[in-house]
Amino acid sequence: MEERSKERSSSRKNIYRISGIVLAVLIALLLPVICGFLESGAYYLNVINYIFVYTIASTGLNVMTGYSGQINLGGAAYFSVGAYAVVILCNAGVPTLLSVVLAMLVVAFFGFLTAVPAAKLKYHFLALATTAVGEVVNNLLTVSPGGITNDTHGMFVKALVLFGFKFKSDASLYYLLLIMTALCLLFTWAFLHSRTGRACVATRDSVDAAGSCGIDVRQYKIIATVVSCVMIGFAGFLFAYLNRYISPDTFAAGKSTMFMSMMMLGGSGTLFGPFLGAVLITLIMELLRGIQGSGPYMQLTYGFILLIEMMFMPQGVSGAISDYKYKKDRRRMEAAGGDGKDA
């Protein structure tokens, strides 16, 4: 009798889940249409597009920081290299798809270049070193050799053309970004469940234990860094075509902090944490922007959110939620008496 009711409740749960997923997918697919009916739909769609880009970037950061345990405060460097490399190659007449591939190779090489010496640094110094990487790259963008980045004048970006289709409207970009975000999340999931991914997580949890299991810690740290850099660089490429204008000030140190704060606020080391963080931070900022007279306090609020988050829930929102659930479960088990202890 009891088992049957359990079964029934779990099958009901499954129905809820499936209908939830279907609803989510439906909403995600129809969002541009819905936005078309809204008064400020174009603006909302634009904001959602930025959320997708930042989700990809902070998911990339999550691979390095959340899963492999190496802090990176220079995310903007890889972001900018990805953006600039694609735009420069495209302007030189290289086909878009090829230039994206080439640009990702550039980012990967660049990531490798910094990962090799950085893999032996402890986290505080890794924080310092990655900050410096971010600074150096930003400096080189402003005074580039031969002026290839057009220095502080910035570069205009033409509309993205892929397979003969021109991604000019926000709606078309939305679908592109939606697919790319889904693919990136899927890739991250697959990566984490691969042998390499598991090894990376093991190095985060305990370097010594991982080493004693025969894992080459340094090698996996480098792999995680390169994968992470490529994902951030890919987000940079999408950003360039979304923003349609890139200049060095967009890739300043503040951007690295933003990626970090998105990842931390959502919950580092969780698959959907970065997405959650990107949504929360972008929404909070945009809602604040909507309140007249709040302008001067926007940055202050952003700082405070980050500070309070670090003080009271460093595991992020998803960490706090699972913490709450865990406590609730335990309370229920305790209330049930001896039953809970066995389970």
Binding site: S40, Y245, D249
Partner: peptide, 27 residues
């Protein structure tokens, strides 16, 4: 008057400004 702030980490930022103008135009 509708005024939006484009300050980002102590400097005015092009990305923020683009978002502000998008909001001004469509919203």
């Amino acid at each position: 008057l509708v005024a939006y702030d484009n300050l980002n980490n102590g400097a005015q930022d092009t990305e923020m400004s683009i978002k502000c103008v998008q909001k001004l135009l469509s919203s």
